[in-house]
Design a binder for these strands. Sequence first.
DNA 1: GAGTTAATCGGAGAGTTCTCCGGTTACGAG
DNA 2: CTCGTAACCGGAGAACTCTCCGATTAACTC
Lengths: 202, 202
Amino acid sequence: MPVRPSLPVAGQPQPERADAARNRQKIIEVAARLIDEKGAEQLSLDEVARAAGVGVGTVYRRFGDRCGLLRALIDEHERRFQAAFMNGPPPLGPGAPPAQRITAFLHGLVDRIDQQQALFLALEKGGSGARYGGPYRVYRVHLATLIAQARPGADAGFLADALLAPVNANLLCHQRDERGMTTEDIKNGLTDLATAVTSHHP
Amino acid sequence: MPVRPSLPVAGQPQPERADAARNRQKIIEVAARLIDEKGAEQLSLDEVARAAGVGVGTVYRRFGDRCGLLRALIDEHERRFQAAFMNGPPPLGPGAPPAQRITAFLHGLVDRIDQQQALFLALEKGGSGARYGGPYRVYRVHLATLIAQARPGADAGFLADALLAPVNANLLCHQRDERGMTTEDIKNGLTDLATAVTSHHP
DNA sequence: GAGTTAATCGGAGAGTTCTCCGGTTACGAG
DNA sequence: CTCGTAACCGGAGAACTCTCCGATTAACTC
């Protein structure tokens, strides 16, 4: 029988042996500490394994690859953010008009990336095809729904991609570090963009 | 005396020794062939060096890193594209109203990425900080100028980033392969986006 | 041509990511 | 408590990117 990859799907807890769970926890703790000390770019899975007292094979079995480990470190914040825009108070959560919710969401996403900038940068660098799976999918559906409410008839799915695309760690970093923009400049720009998209009459 | 990196700046031909020029040419030819045969992702610089009959150090001396080699392979098309939107016939080149030029530019960029999709994908995967240098800078200035003409007072620089962000190989691939969108769908979406951005009255 | 010098060459090697698989261990069944 | 098995462990090793530096060679001067 083939070994299943055992990458746990979020929200669907998989039975995991006690030693495996212990190792997962230990690896996450060690990785978080090492990233604090030396930055996410410098994180070597070899080193994580050594510091956690496990073999490198164990790290890969638990997290699939380097990006998988980084995602695991991001996961908790992610859940909180998703809860905020799906069930939280307006204007981020339900209750406000779609255009306002879209703007609030984009601003929230900027703040969220800022919180764990180093991790997001490292994750985007890794690339892999998984960039548009998981959280991205959730964001996209959320935005597309709001856009469809504000502008029936438009290609809401594409516009969701278009609003999400400029909110990524690489670009944010570049805009701030090399272009001298502030977070407020960026948020203002996103407000303008979102307003233009939702209020456009073709 | 420190060795200067000798990464040639485009358009500023640097005196290069005959053997060095020969090797650069040979490396580019071999790399192009290997990419045709096995795909850009599978391109190993070790293999390129062996097939070109040079040491691996030579490849790195010439092109700096993996991305540098990929950029060199992209370079010729790049020059043609830049010439087209800076000096070519309208609506891509000068002569058409800004809004139309913006749309034409975005459509042209989609086509351009399609032409060398594999290379762009590999280049984006590599990441590095150089993603916003070189061609990107040119695109950004071009778009920002046009946007400033269409909508004086707006943050044209940011909006240029925002229009460029959704036009990248990773997203285009994703939209087509996993979402079933056609190139036409994407271009229509970009037209809508550009129109919204340039005709918005705050 | 011969000499000088600085750019170039090439391969050994360090540091990574990820794979593979023989040996080990947790845990439910009896 | 014992046993059987599926899941897990860990480290050797393959493949890769990139660095370093002694040996080599192109190109300019005389």
